[in-house]
Nucleic acid binder design. Structure first.
Lengths: 142, 142
DNA sequence: ATACGGGCTGTAGTCACTACAGGTTCAAGA
DNA sequence: TCTTGAACCTGTAGTGACTACAGCCCGTAT
């Protein structure tokens, strides 16, 4: 028995079902070259092996961490090269961590303002809505 | 003098320059009906009035708070109706605040994991990269 | 009079999917 | 064996919020 991991192939949406990933999304990943093209049955249906599943799970988990598909492509390349990928992978992840922190900061700014205006609106019976006034107000009111 | 705010019209990208909004974006907002079509010069150039600027600033500030263009459309409608808009505007803002908080929670989860794996990678000289292993690892390892 | 910087329209590209339309295959039941 | 119907197949178009371009026209300064 070789190491080709062709023990059992998954069909009828089993891959999608097992991973929780939409089948359309799996095919999209294949189309953009993130997943390899699986072998086909005589009728043309895709027959995935466990190595496909493993790679798909990698992609899914990386997406859950917010990596872009291009970053994931890079991470997969590094993972396969097996030539000291850790330093480079760390750079990709650290850059992404910076992005995530910047997004959190942006959203927290939004949250603070939104919380304030919603509170100012109170029960919504004010004649002049503070939310609308805030949006109309010039940044530097004279 | 009427209340039409046609005191001076802005041309040659002045509106974009004054608001910091890309001129292409302004035209996009006009195309999707978020901003009214301004009158034109004899040559077909757009001549904005201060009411256009006011409305554009509303959109820009709402975008800064993360509202979608559809939500902004609704807020603008409420702002113009002047028929007790506060309660309804508050609902829009409160729903959006929920969205923002959910996004913050998602991003914080990502941040926590990313911070951990980057720390585990250390100086990047490990033979097995913890980041890549984390991505390959099954959610429920046996 | 002419140059050229900016406006004009309309289309296509971005990202990461998602949703069809219109056809084919497969596995289970009769 | 035949039939049914679900699930697969390909390819295209739509989403949101822009951004970038091509190819043309206008307007102002020299």
């Amino acid at each position: 028995m070789s190491g080709h991991a062709a023990v059992k192939s998954l069909q009828r949406g089993e891959l999608a079902e097992r991973t929780g990933c939409n089948i359309e999304t799996v095919r999209y990943y294949e189309k953009i070259g993130l997943l390899p093209e699986p072998p086909r049955t005589s009728g043309g249906h895709r027959a995935y092996s466990s190595s496909h599943e493993r790679r798909l799970r990698f992609v899914i988990r990386a997406r859950e961490l917010g990596f872009s598909l291009d970053e994931i492509r890079e991470l997969l390349r590094l993972a396969e090269e097996r030539d000291r990928p850790c330093a480079e992978a760390r750079i990709v992840a650290a850059a992404h961590l910076q992005d995530v922190r910047a997004k959190i900061a942006d959203l927290k700014r939004m949250e603070r303002v939104l919380k304030e205006v919603v509170a100012q609106c109170g029960d919504g019976t004010l004649p002049e809505c503070p939310l609308i006034e805030t949006l109309y107000r010039e940044p530097v009111a004279k």
